[in-house]
């Protein structure tokens, strides 16, 4: 990922409406993001674009992810 794209993504992950997501998403960027394939990284960018409550419900297991493309990254977020 280009430096600028990563900078934008980092800002959008670390300045959320919900504290829960600030922590969960920045930690994921620090610990897991580099190990993802380019395609998986794009899926993460898509997830990071979701509304805060919807994304937090997926990560906290209060809702199930029905999109098979997103589900593997959601599973990683849950464990991270």
């Amino acid at each position: 990922m280009k430096r600028e794209d990563y900078g934008r993504l980092r800002w959008r992950c670390s300045r959320r409406a919900l504290l829960e997501l600030d922590i969960a998403l920045t930690r994921f960027l620090d610990e897991r993001f580099d190990q993802l394939s380019e395609e998986q990284q794009q899926v993460f960018v898509e997830l990071a674009d979701m509304e805060d409550h919807d994304l937090w419900y997926l990560i906290s297991g209060q809702a199930e992810c029905e999109d098979p493309r997103l589900a593997p990254i959601v599973a990683l977020l849950r464990k991270s």
Binding site: R15, R16, A17, L18
Partner: peptide, 12 residues
């Protein structure tokens, strides 16, 4: 705004 308006902390 530092973020898209609907990402403001009022959402919480």
């Amino acid at each position: 705004s530092k973020v898209f308006p609907t990402r403001s902390h009022t959402v919480a």
